[in-house]
Design a protein around this nucleic acid. Sequence first.
DNA 1: CCTAAAGTCACCCGATCGAGTGACCGATAT
DNA 2: ATATCGGTCACTCGATCGGGTGACTTTAGG
Lengths: 204, 204
Amino acid sequence: MTTTVLVCDDSPAVRESFRKSLSTLSEIERVTAAGSGEEVLARYPLERPDVVLLDVQMPGMGGVEAAKRLVSSHPDATIVMLTMGEDVDGVSEAIEDGARGYMAKNVSVEELASTMTLVLASNAELPGQRGEINRPGGRPPVLTEREQQVLDGMSRGRSNAEIGRELFLSEDTVKTHARRLFRKLGASDRAQAVAFGFRWSFLR
Amino acid sequence: MTTTVLVCDDSPAVRESFRKSLSTLSEIERVTAAGSGEEVLARYPLERPDVVLLDVQMPGMGGVEAAKRLVSSHPDATIVMLTMGEDVDGVSEAIEDGARGYMAKNVSVEELASTMTLVLASNAELPGQRGEINRPGGRPPVLTEREQQVLDGMSRGRSNAEIGRELFLSEDTVKTHARRLFRKLGASDRAQAVAFGFRWSFLR
DNA sequence: CCTAAAGTCACCCGATCGAGTGACCGATAT
DNA sequence: ATATCGGTCACTCGATCGGGTGACTTTAGG
């Protein structure tokens, strides 16, 4: 399954503890560790772990803030909060912001295993394969020929004017198709449109 | 193999003739037809045929000009020029511009078959799989962590300022990483950078 | 029959981008 | 010992982008 986990806690002891426990689980392929919320935000896009275990209380950016920012930049991130026990308020806030669950730091290996299984199972409700996960929700949008041609031009680094020249259209017309394309894909700019184009297999 | 061919000739009779002949070849999956150079340029990005058969002499945009424009926008296109026999000058010009070969319009089915086999075989010298073909030449560039993070942000539709906020960097710093990223990928803007990101598997 | 969708083109406007340049720092390589 | 590379930040400038709006036409659908 190549399941990877990113553990974040300011205490090296806790990180090592989780790393060791997680390594004993057969479904976990790789475990990496971070010591701060900032580090999590920096590493997430590089490692793209399947699950992030995030301590609630940390110096600097707390786990709740880190969860919030992580969710806003990566809505598909799977986050499980770690708590010592008494910060119920922070946990519930993080869960409202998108964390999938919580767990006490002093869990047994058995509890850890069942929690991870549960979280990964709920992941399995999603399309499943990596690459499917990044797809925006809902059914694939239907693009017109023009929209596909414009998207294709964008992916080749062409400006709207250049695309117009290639397709024998005015730049303004290209912009109209581009605007409709963005709406259909839910993209905010051409870079994101190209990304969605690949994820929906409009581009190769 | 799902090999597809796009035939372009201003004469419907010639188009139909090639369509029929090509259909008898087992390695050809699908044949589509166009009646002008403009149509070829418009349809290519939509159909992405494996081979384009292009008549040299056509009203409006000639086959040579069409080949030139097609190659400039799609360097990986495989083009075979079709000639009645006397336009050697145009054929050689098209070949210099990127066409893979030429063929007389009155070829027998056997000659057609051997030419297609040859062209498809020389295609096989390339990486092979669709999706590999679109990769820029050379070895995959080595991106730094920052460059990957910036690329990731771009694929999510973030502006440079937003990426800066996510990574705790100034917008100017993000722009510097973006510029270096473009250089390494050979991209002219963020949309193309994202496209290359997917093709090099930096993005998913 | 009329509406909706797609295609075409135009004008305005503020935000963003990308190029170019220069600079300082630390680590690594030569 | 010095050069290179990656990371950081700043400033300028012209080009491009994306939003908003409106309008005309054709085709398809209800």
